[in-house]
Design a protein around this nucleic acid. Structure first.
Ligand SMILES: [Mn+2]
Ligand SMILES: [Mn+2]
Ligand SMILES: [Mn+2]
Ligand SMILES: [Mn+2]
Lengths: 218, 218
DNA sequence: TAATAAATTTAGACTAATCTAAAAATAGAA
DNA sequence: TTCTATTTTTAGATTAGTCTAAATTTATTA
């Protein structure tokens, strides 16, 4: 059985490996978790001795099959709890992450599966992220960055990259939520900002940085 | 903000003070929590320096108003989560305690109240224990120990003292659950065991020890 | 390729929570 | 009331997780 701290390291390693498609470096983990590189280095040895990671000094870490299974299950729990908080307790999508960070560490052989059943097996969380099933399989969704749409192309907002509260509240204010229909009216070369038609009604302009954090389906 | 460990100490102190109607002794806490008396002694000083307890060396501890508020809220969270697990996720009453022990430590200003609303403000948990409201007020229930019923008296089972899984499973096997109608047919002086009529149907005999753990309402 | 910069690991220290063993204080019995 | 048993506290160690500073290794650049 792992501590919450160890579990968080596994999640960070999973996230980084997935993003960069290579072994997670000490510094990358350190910055992801806001801890010192020294602490990370220390923890990597412990996780390896517990069979959770493959680790060679100075070369970074990857998850073992067991480590991967635990990380995936944490993501499953995190996202199912987020669905619960939004669907059943009526929290907004910007409020749930911190609670889910705690709830994902609840140890119980059965709880997550009962929750899954209670929620009727949702495939995506409130931020559009896929929820792995009990075997760790994700539903793959063909989604592209909003920046990849060309002028006059349309798409549906299906996901966000960031899930910080400030970013999500900004989206709310702009009238953007999952399911919103978007049409690219104009792309400004100068700073990469984009003028959009939202749900065939309002026009808004958003920065390149915001665009990069939005996923759409054509 | 307190650690889970500190919170557990407050709960133990609350429980003991309530049961014995006096300051909780180091040994009582030690045995309640299965830790050494030395650890307890150490923790009591820390909790006092944080303003959670009134503590005088060798005299035991009581909770301050703040300590009491936190302990009560922990009990509120624990019991509401138990209701959730039984009512919504269909766990049985003997399965939920350990999960609730973890869930009660989730920190969120709002979660417990949303949960309370979602569950439609239950007044009692699956073991018949009262759930304090957001202000810390308990619904008092006039309940008596089954041992206090005399021969030929009847009552409804409304609560259990113990909530260990083994005890609850035993009750299930005997056909006893909250709401069950009981009539005392005979009391055996020799060992304090009692013959009962259950729901005006079956007859069972239970030991004195079991009796002491059952609460009924006449 | 050699020097320098960056990344990583090691060394040593700190805190929370725990323990055992020893010392001190309180309570109970003679 | 004095001795003894019990309870409680203190002393000293240990482990997980963290830190800063120093040492080491790897990568980059001249
Ligand atoms: Mn999240
Ligand atoms: Mn999410
Ligand atoms: Mn319980
Ligand atoms: Mn209960």
């Amino acid at each position: 059985m792992l501590s919450s701290t160890e579990e968080n390291y596994l999640k960070a390693i999973y996230k980084i490996s997935e993003r960069d498609n290579k072994a997670a470096s000490t510094n990358a983990i350190s910055s992801e978790m806001s801890t010192s590189a020294a602490s990370v280095s220390d923890m990597l040895q412990r996780l390896s001795s517990k069979g959770m990671t493959h680790y060679e000094k100075y070369k970074g870490v990857t998850l073992t099959e067991q480590g991967n299974r635990i990380a995936t299950n944490l993501i499953r729990k995190h996202r199912l709890w987020e669905v619960f908080l939004v669907e059943k307790l009526n929290f907004t999508w910007d409020e749930v992450h911190d609670m889910a960070e705690q709830l994902e560490h609840i140890q119980s052989p059965d709880l997550v599966n009962r929750l899954d059943q209670f929620l009727e097996y949702p495939k995506f969380d409130p931020h559009g992220d896929p929820i792995p099933d009990a075997d760790g399989n994700f539903t793959h969704r063909r989604q592209i960055e909003l920046t990849n749409l060309t002028t006059k192309e349309s798409g549906t907002l299906v996901g966000v990259q960031e899930d910080s509260s400030t970013f999500l509240k900004y989206l709310d204010q702009m009238g953007l939520s999952l399911g919103t229909e978007l049409k690219v009216l104009e792309k400004f070369e100068f700073d990469g900002s984009v003028k959009l038609l939202v749900n065939n009604k309002e026009q808004i302009t958003i920065s390149n940085k915001v665009c990069k954090n939005l996923f759409v389906k054509k």
